[in-house]
Design a protein around this nucleic acid. Structure first.
Lengths: 136, 136
DNA sequence: TTCTAGTTTATAATAATTCTAAACTAGAAA
DNA sequence: TTTCTAGTTTAGAATTATTATAAACTAGAA
């Protein structure tokens, strides 16, 4: 599948029609080899550069939310009152620097768990994340 | 040390004078055998029951913040835009139920890590938390 | 008991997010 | 190709959590 179709496909499977605005958002998120972390605020700055509004904030919120529930983005756990997202949806872990408040990826293979609890009755484990808080 | 002095001591070592309001907050937090999770909102409801205001919201925010930096409370990692705290400051982990959005403690001994990455240069590991997301 | 630095509080300000309703458009059907 | 409508976008208002402000109050040293 080419890049264009890939994006249209992600939108469709997230339950979204591929409009101009949504395609722009999807490109900003998925048109890169590297994965990255972002907030709605930083994504908005990236899309609506130099004071030129191409997509409204409301649409960015809605689209990010849809991609997240479809599993194309992962919400990151932090202790801040702002939502952080990761375009890397593979299982992996994070360093959280308490000084700079920055998140860094830790590859899955860098951490190994030798004992995991059984989940409460009727529940299944969806995902497991380790956050290592670091400081100077 | 008795309960009263314990509380005064926690306040003093958090850099706070033991005023009537702060002692009330500290009692709500530490006068129980069981540890628990809370938000400023739930703590406020617990303290200012039945529409009777005993302590202002601002003081609750300030005091919780001071206890947190002093290490008497731990901020919990979530994907929500609200601060969650834990009166259990011992190293432990959490189940996070994506359906009900509830957090449950996992005892430290229930999880064992057999491989941990080295932190970036000049940084030390302060704390390590595992969050296991569960769903139906 | 006095006095002042520290404290409390109601209220305003700010920040992130969600809601609303009117104008617009993708794309199925004619 | 054109028409039509359900879905979409948007600016701005509303809501929610948090932080700031500044005037009235008080713990506790002297």
């Amino acid at each position: 599948m080419n890049q264009k179709n890939e994006i249209v496909n992600k939108l469709r499977t997230s339950g979204l029609r591929p409009t101009k605005q949504r395609v722009l958002i999807a490109k900003s998120l998925f048109d890169s080899d590297k994965t990255f972390h972002f907030t709605v605020e930083t994504l908005n700055k990236k899309i609506n550069k130099n004071g030129v509004t191409k997509v409204s904030l409301a649409t960015i919120y809605n689209t990010v939310e849809a991609f997240t529930s479809a599993g194309y983005l992962k919400e990151i756990l932090t202790s801040k009152n702002k939502s952080y997202y990761d375009t890397n949806i593979k299982s992996h872990h994070h360093f959280y620097d308490e000084g700079s408040k920055e998140l860094t990826d830790i590859r899955y293979s860098q951490i190994r768990l030798s004992k995991i609890p059984t989940p409460p009755k009727g529940k299944k484990i969806k995902n497991l994340e380790v956050v290592i808080r670091i400081q100077k």
